[in-house]
Design a protein around this nucleic acid. Structure first.
Lengths: 330, 330
DNA sequence: ACAAAAAATGTAATCGATTACATTAATAAC
DNA sequence: GTTATTAATGTAATCGATTACATTTTTTGT
């Protein structure tokens, strides 16, 4: 494989000039730049990036840690990250942590070992050292830690959730159940607080029997519904993501509880399938693309210390489709 | 940041010994190994992998090129790849090519520039040079090129498709429409051939009005259905993936064509949502996890030239759920 | 046309881990 | 106890691109 020396010899210049022709073309005369370029073509030269990284102490690569590549929710976030990364000459590499801290750690090692410059984490399932403010450029998107100083980009889970319940109350529901995510997750705590606050504002009490939890998978929504159905007579159900909402909708169908006539269901995320289910799913839309873009921009700030990187809160929107209907007591 | 020299000084040994303690521990005495290890801990040493890669001419990293991270179909394939990679001390990095050859090229460059050792491509949207047998370790999974010598792992699309249509014929359907994928894709050609052959075996002629094509997205299935519905009276519909099948199912609902009573629908892939739709989707299951595992194993063969890497064809299975029902003419 | 400033290029050190080869220490063989 | 073997360690070159600094060439100003 050709290296700078070969190119230099072929072009009749020094290795320094070859290097400059690649990375600082403005510092090389038009004429020699052309000579170098054709020499590079002639011997099929590709620079060895390990060598460059070694010398430069950077890699122009960012790692995105996903807890679960199978969750479509992350797709557009990643797209947004890629758009901004590309504009800034960064490569994006996706690491699926499969919800395992150990696996996430392996990706963080890529930064420690200089194979990547920074991390955007879409999961809070990270090793303790990260929370303790280890010196690694990292931005969290969607998720966050309580009281830990990692810059984040996210939504206002509390308000989004509160608005959804407000809407259900508005259209006459009083018995509103809820399928949460894992309650050790701060965003789930926030969503549950929104749910509780909305009920309290309507002078309704939160009934623990109306609440069950899942792990964001289709199946967990399905089985949580079956458990809830036995213990609580609900007219509406709020699920902490669309996948669980679909699982619950399926389960409701199986017990003959028609959606939305007998049961209203609201999801969270607005995944692509949400408008293709029958009935189409009412859900809370997150600005995934914008979250991704902002996260990458924030990471660039962290990397270049341009300004103290801050938290960003982006807006959500309740999309009313056909899985919800107004309720009036008979 | 500490480097081998620092560790060496701290442990009172040479850099060579430090290096050996890391990568060939059996060549170092028990005693010095311990000394080195505690010295590494003491100064918080992480080896600079760029330096190692530079010297070793390898990166222990493989790139997986996905055409679309939003397509859940790839999730378990990636899991399978990761399982085998981990066993062999390889890192897996996912690259979303967004169906763009240019983007795929950027990932291929990672190999040329020694940042990755090989590629598993889940898309055939690759630059021409790859097809021309460029000297890059690459394995294709699911997709393939006609007449190009890249090792592949895939299913028998022709037979899988033929079996699905055979089943529809068996349960009495005669007017079977089809929503294909992009017809410049060899796997789509194979599936369409299976569809045609099954019809021919039953002495039915393939009617071009019964065929439309999509791009594997929910929406394309939805709009293809609406086009088909205007021009062809079908009692069954075969879609080349589950996402289009769901889109079509939604469209069928909108025109009042009940599934499965008035229209049977078959998908392809068995994505996680397929058992949570109403009705649950009959579909062709692919062994995604196994495809991924085999692809990674094949890539290891390619990398180490252990034996001529071959093509592998894995089995599929028709999963009959509730979106299909038998048809009898009135 | 000449000095001064600016632009272009070259020389060689550098990044940090690895490893061929050389040397020393430990063990085995007789 | 001496030599032959083997194990452990050290020395220094190496991977390939970058860049500080030095030198040469070109441009500018008068």
């Amino acid at each position: 494989m050709a290296n700078v020396k070969d190119v230099a010899k072929l072009a009749g210049v020094s290795t320094a000039t070859v290097s400059r022709a690649m990375t600082h073309p403005e510092k090389v005369s038009e004429k020699t730049r052309k000579k170098v370029q054709s020499a590079m073509l002639e011997c099929g030269f590709s620079p060895n990036v390990s060598a460059r990284n070694l010398r430069r102490c950077e890699s122009k690569t960012v790692i995105v840690i996903l807890p679960d590549i199978a969750n479509q929710f992350f797709a557009d976030i990643v797209r947004g990250i890629q758009i901004i990364a590309k504009k800034n000459d960064y490569k994006v590499l996706l690491g699926d942590s499969v919800h395992a801290v150990e696996q996430a750690n392996a990706y963080i090692d890529l930064v420690k070992t200089k194979q990547a410059d920074g991390i955007i984490s879409l999961t809070s399932e990270l090793p303790e050292e990260v929370k303790e403010g280890i010196n690694i450029p990292i931005v969290m998107a969607c998720e966050y830690f309580e009281n830990f100083p990692v810059p984040t980009v996210r939504i206002d889970n509390y308000t989004a959730s509160k608005n959804a319940i407000d809407y259900l109350l508005d259209i006459g529901h009083k018995r509103i159940a809820c399928i949460t995510g894992p309650m050790d997750n701060p965003i789930c705590v926030a969503r549950k607080n929104g749910y509780r606050q909305s009920l309290e504002n309507a002078s309704l009490e939160l009934d623990e029997l109306a609440i069950d939890s899942g792990d964001f998978s289709f199946h967990s929504g399905y089985s949580a519904f079956h458990r809830l159905y036995k213990q609580y007579k609900m007219t509406a159900l709020f699920c902490f993501n669309d996948m669980m909402a679909l699982g619950a909708m399926r389960a409701a169908f199986e017990v003959g509880l028609n959606v939305p006539e007998k049961l209203s269901i609201i999801g969270f995320d607005d995944l692509p399938f949400a408008q293709y289910t029958t009935p189409q799913l009412t859900t809370i839309q997150q600005p995934q693309l914008q979250i991704g873009k902002t996260a990458m921009q924030t990471l660039l700030h962290v990397l270049f210390d341009e300004k103290a990187a801050q938290d960003t809160i982006l807006p959500t929107q309740l999309l009313v489709r056909s899985s919800t209907a107004s309720y009036s007591e008979k």
